Simulated assay, not measured.
Amino acid sequence: MEVEKESEIWYAMRATYRRELDAMRLLEKEKLGCFIPMQYKISVKKGKKVRVLMPVIHNLVFVHACPSEVKRVKSQINYLQYITDTRSGQKIIIPDNDMQRFIAVAGTYNDHLLYFQPDELNLSKGTRVRIIGGDFEGQEGLFLKVKGARDRRVVIEIQGVIAVAMATIHPDLIEVIE
């Protein structure tokens, strides 16, 4: 009998009590893919201001692995939990192309990125666009006005988990997707 090969998928997970970095170290030790959106913040240590790379949203970890691997590791790391959809109760699984797009933007640690909870933005008002130049060339998202920014920005969303608004992009570098 042939064993069906499980494919790796992206899970949105929660590491309780701000232990997302500990979870990431343990997941990397187990050779599992993971991603935590991070950003530089200024903090004061011993009276001096220093730039520190910190998670954007505490407790959020994206894990890339086969379901059986996640189950095995989750049994060892008791503070790692699945994030579930509030309506259906299903585990939140992110399509690979959405996650690659999100990592391409959030993985830059750019100071001008703005992060939002899904309910903070009205994505239905956005226009689907593709960026045709600059640092984020090839990325697709929604072009809309976001809170905390003077102008419209391209937003990439992970359904029901997080959204990231890119830095201001010149209109000449944006094309509308029909």
Rank of each mutant, 00 (worst) to 15 (best):
E30N: 13
M54Y: 11
K31W: 08
I36P: 13
K46G: 00
L26H: 13
L60W: 02
K48D: 05
K29F: 13
V50T: 07
Y40R: 12
K41T: 05
K49T: 10
K29V: 01
E30Y: 07
G33R: 03
Q39F: 08
V63L: 07
K29D: 11
Y40P: 01
M54T: 15
A65T: 10
L27I: 02
V61A: 01
L60Q: 01
L53D: 11
V56H: 05
R25G: 13
C34I: 00
P55M: 02
F35H: 01
I36V: 11
V56C: 13
A65E: 09
I42Q: 15
V44Q: 14
G47Q: 08
I57A: 15
H58L: 04
I36M: 11
G33V: 01
L53V: 05
K41W: 08
M38G: 04
K45T: 07
C34N: 07
F35N: 00
V56R: 11
E28M: 15
G47V: 06
F35W: 03
K46V: 02
L53Q: 12
V56W: 10
E28G: 08
F62W: 01
K45R: 13
P37G: 00
E30F: 08
E28R: 14
V50I: 07
K31A: 12
R51I: 00
V44F: 12
V52M: 07
M38K: 10
N59S: 06
L32M: 15
L26K: 15
K29W: 13
F35Y: 09
V56E: 14
N59E: 10
S43D: 02
F62M: 08
G33W: 02
V52A: 12
C34P: 03
V44C: 15
S43A: 11
G33K: 02
V61C: 03
C34D: 06
M38D: 04
P37M: 00
P37K: 02
V52E: 15
K31Y: 12
F35E: 03
V63I: 12
A65I: 09
K49M: 03
G33Q: 10
C34Q: 07
K45P: 01
E30V: 04
E30G: 09
V52F: 01
K45C: 04
R25D: 08
I42A: 14
E28F: 13
V52K: 13
E30Q: 15
Y40N: 00
R25F: 08
I36A: 05
K48C: 01
P55I: 03
E30R: 12
V50D: 09
K46C: 05
E30L: 00
V63P: 01
L32K: 10
L27T: 10
M54K: 15
K46Q: 04
L32V: 08
K29Q: 10
H58M: 06
L27N: 10
E30C: 10
L60P: 04
N59P: 10
H58Q: 15
K29H: 15
I42L: 11
A23P: 05
N59F: 07
H64K: 14
K49C: 02
L27V: 06
